[in-house]
Amino acid sequence: MLLKKIMELDFMSIDLQLYLDTHPNDIRVLKKYNEVVEESNMLKKEYEKEFGPLVSFRNTQDAAEKWSDEPWPSQRRMNLRIFKEMR
């Protein structure tokens, strides 16, 4: 599932960024970080085409899939399918 994959990649990018904050000269990890972010950006474009904007104020949107559309992240049905796959 697309959203689960995006969540995994974004978690990796957060963790790698924290590492890079205190190890700014580690080129190997910087490369990995860039790969992860690029893959996530690609998947996000795909996701947004189907489900509407993922990030506030940063992307165009159309009339069919609006920013305000449910589900919002705290709702169980947003997480239900992702969770099934994790077990």
Binding site: L3, K4, I6, M7, D10, F11, I14, P53, L54, V55, S56, F57, R58, W67, W72, P73, S74, R76, M78, N79, L80, I82, F83, M86
Partner: peptide
């Protein structure tokens, strides 16, 4: 800050 419309880790509590 911007907001991303997803959780950092999925949560699905049934009970």
């Amino acid at each position: 800050w911007v907001y991303e419309k997803k959780l950092m880790y999925p949560i699905n509590i049934k009970r």
